[in-house]
Amino acid sequence: MNAFFASPNVEAALVASAIVAALSAAIGYFVVLRGLSFAGHAVTDIGMTGGAGAMLAGLDPLVGLIAFSVGAGAAVGAFGERARERDVATGLVLAFALGAGALFLHLQTAFANAQTTLLFGSIFDVAPALLRVVAAIGVVALAVLTALYRPLLFASVAPLAARSVGVPVRTLGYAFLIVMAVAVAETAQIVGVLIATALLVGPAATAMTLVREPLRGIALAMTIGIGISWLSIACAFASFDLSRGAQSWPASFFVAVITLVVYVAARAFRERRA
């Protein structure tokens, strides 16, 4: 276990994952409240195309991730009011973006591992420079969310009433989608595009099952998120240790599975209590 804390890679992984988990959980609370799980997932996946495109163009993948995620967030917002139409349109734009991502990855033969790194993350490989970027973006995004908190909550649960007292409901919806896009792009950079949804939706939905009050719920969600990501890192590290360095299990696997287990357990707990 000493090796665990001594390793600088592990330390960077713990810090970075705590930042993205806390941010994802806070934003995820509103994602679940607004029924945007699919949109949230789509935005991450579309970010993959951006990441792959940026690599193809010789840029930092984070730039492409954020650019495409934010664009996708705005596009999802523009699809308008009707839930079912949003469902289909989100799905098809997502499918096309994934197709384009597949093409970019296909064209880019330079790194064989780029594809899986982008898709499934590389949490033990966080460079100090990236850590600083992640921290800065995380602080800004959380600050924006704090500023938006009250009107956003109102607009999420009672849009018509909120509009009647002068809350700019539509603008707020867009602003939120963009903050969400930044958050998931950042998370994707750490845990991988395909798993970012887990930290976005899982802790928030779990907290919502257990606690009714929003602020306490968000705090609990952040705690659960950080707990899940640290536990996952520990498990991944242990799997490396247990196999004597021969083969380690990806942290992404643990994040995804632990998130699902925690959510199912929370629901079972609530149903037993009810």
Partner: peptide, 19 residues
């Protein structure tokens, strides 16, 4: 929410088998 979580759990499992 269940859909999103089942989805990522299976992707994670896929990542494991891939690794």
């Amino acid at each position: 929410v269940p859909t999103a979580l089942v989805l990522v759990a299976s992707l994670g499992t896929g990542a494991l088998f891939l690794a």
